[in-house]
Design a protein around this nucleic acid. Structure first.
Length: 572
DNA sequence: ATAGGGTTAG
């Protein structure tokens, strides 16, 4: 190898811009070195994979190679896999596979699988799986971790797990990867189960494990487990060196009912990024602290962090939950005018909810009709739930007509309208809606509630009588209703307490909590749907009658029940 | 001559 080639290679090593690369390239051409394998590989690798690179120029370089070798193909496949057009990686691989001059190696498959995941091509993933199996790369740990990830990205969780289970050996990355897979699809109990298994076979945890676990704790409301993970994170120094860990902790504490602790972690973090601020914003908004959310938002600006669409969603939700409709609308307009962020359907939805909940129904409808998301059912759905809160049949029926016209109505919508009919005593309306759900075979989302006792999460599903303690639970619910009734409990919909049928899952969880925890202990419930009006009222009265603080996290926010009232001030 | 894992919202 000549000295000039050495020099060119070392220049390429330190290259950090395309401008620089062009100069080095010209230099190589002058000395007749531009087709040396080592030089072309380096040139290509920079253009295709560096953030300062240029994929189209990589293609130009590649086309000039008389016989591209495996590393050349790999660079391109790698570059396109993370580009906006990952499917081009697959085309490249197909050409490479047909070429007689080189064979794919382990790295090829790693990059290709990344592309398969991002391009959402389950069929290709399966085909590649076969190729990997036949060519003996299945025993490669990195390749099979990538394969598992590709299945997971395509929504095939079971296949992802199968690949994981069939690995001849697993390292911590493989374990973290499958845990993350369960987190992404919302199978948080499974994620924790896998961690316990990982731990049982002798693995410790690192930052990635911690982040996955905390995310699962957050979703399940598993505070005790979360606190345990927090301690381990501190002990290992993860918090100091890794911003992800702090972010996940802020989120976990906020979602598990401990806003003060979330704030404390937030305040003590050595470095904060956009996720940190957003997690805290959402934390405040979930507790109905809209005013504090606005303050935090201003502090975020002063700290020099540019807010993004998620920041505004948190802020708007905060305004919404505290009934700060005018503040909310003001910030909604600031989004595009001052921050150049286009509001998406979720932001519009939040404003509809905000206006509707505040009783400004006409304004809300007008807002929907003049929005770019006029044909998005989500906005109409938010409108429908505002009609339910304000028992407005007229608007409710109008909104339902719209949803039907758009063929976008679902069982939840029918339940909402049925609820409106029920609240004004129109039993014909109620049965009309029930018939509609039944005849059209629409599926409702089953409600569930979790309660954590001694580090173990118990899950209750509506009408689920399979629990061994079910009789005791029903007795407790009867007692709750009896004691609440003497405090004036009068439900809007009465039939649900007959014979244990139609009892919402949070009542099962609260009854269970009352049975199994010492007198006076705070109960924390996490549920997937919004709490209904009757359950809200009953929980208020139970908190008084049993002298318990009860914290319920529903789909939207926290309700802290104490001495007969709720932190949401009945505004939710 | 190169490879695999993580956080907020919905």
């Amino acid at each position: 190898m000549c000295r000039v080639e050495d020099a060119v290679l070392s220049l390429l090593q330190g290259c950090n811009s395309m401008q620089r690369l062009h100069k080095i390239h010209a230099h190589a051409v002058i000395h007749g070195l531009d087709l040396r394998p080592a030089v072309t590989a380096k040139l290509l690798s920079f253009c295709a994979t560096s953030s300062a690179g240029d994929l189209s120029y990589a293609l130009v370089l590649f086309s000039r190679l008389p016989i591209p070798a495996t590393p050349h193909w790999n660079s391109l496949i790698r570059g396109f896999a993370v580009s906006p057009s990952p499917s081009f990686s697959i085309s490249l691989y197909n050409s490479m596979f047909c070429s007689a001059d080189c064979r794919p190696d382990a790295a090829t498959f790693s990059f290709l699988l990344k592309a398969c995941g991002r391009a959402a091509t389950a069929e290709k993933s399966r085909e590649v799986h076969g190729t990997i199996f036949r060519s003996g790369f299945a025993s490669n740990l990195i390749v099979s971790t990538n394969l598992s990830r590709a299945y997971s990205d395509n929504g095939f969780v079971k296949d992802a797990r199968k690949v994981f289970d069939e690995m001849p050996e697993r390292d911590i990355v493989a374990w973290n990867s499958i845990i993350a897979c369960y987190c992404r699809v919302g199978m948080h109990e499974e994620a924790i189960k896998v961690y316990r298994k990982m731990s049982a076979v002798g693995f410790g945890l690192d930052e990635f494990t911690v982040v996955g676990l905390l995310s699962s704790c957050a979703h399940l409301g598993a505070l005790e487990l979360g606190v345990w993970v927090h301690k381990l994170a501190v002990k290992n120094g993860f918090l100091k060196k890794n911003v992800f860990v702090g972010n996940a902790l802020v989120d976990m504490y906020a979602k598990c009912g401990n806003l003060q602790q979330a704030r404390q972690v937030f305040d003590q973090m050595p470095k904060r990024d956009i996720f940190t601020w957003n997690s805290m914003l959402f934390g405040l908004s979930m507790y109905g602290c809209g005013q504090e959310a606005i303050t935090l938002f201003d502090q975020m600006l002063m700290a020099g962090i540019q807010p993004n669409d998620v920041s505004f969603l948190g802020l708007l939700m905060g305004c919404n939950h505290q009934g700060l409709a005018d503040e909310g609308v003001k910030h909604f307009h600031l989004m595009s005018s001052k921050f150049a962020i286009q509001p998406d359907a979720k932001h519009y939805c939040c404003v509809v909810d905000m206006l509707g909940r505040a009783g400004r129904l006409e304004e809300a409808i007008k807002f929907v009709k003049t929005s770019p998301f006029l044909f998005d059912s989500v906005l109409w759905r938010a409108m429908l739930s505002a009609c339910k809160i304000h028992k407005n049949v007229e608007f409710g029926e109008l909104v339902m007509e719209n949803l039907i016209k758009m063929s976008a109505y679902n069982a939840g919508d029918c339940c909402l309208l049925a609820g409106i009919y029920a609240s004004i005593g129109d039993s014909n309306g109620v049965s009309k809606m029930r018939k509609m759900v039944k005849e059209q075979g629409m599926k409702t989302t089953p409600g569930w509630s979790c309660i954590e006792l001694n580090g173990e999460v118990r899950k209750f599903v509506v009408d689920d009588n399979s629990h061994p303690e079910i009789e005791e639970i029903h007795d407790k619910i009867k007692e709750m209703i009896r004691r609440a009734t003497s405090l004036g409990f009068a439900p809007e919909i009465e039939e649900w307490m007959e014979n244990g049928v139609g009892i919402h899952s949070e009542m099962l969880a609260i009854a269970f909590g009352l049975m199994r925890t010492p007198e006076g202990m705070r109960l924390r419930i996490t549920k997937n749907l919004r709490i209904c009006k009757d359950c809200h009222l009953l929980t208020k009265l139970v908190s008084h009658a049993f002298g318990r603080e009860i914290v319920v996290r529903d789909r939207m926010r926290f309700h802290q029940f104490e001495s007969g009232s709720c932190s949401c001030k009945d505004y939710w």
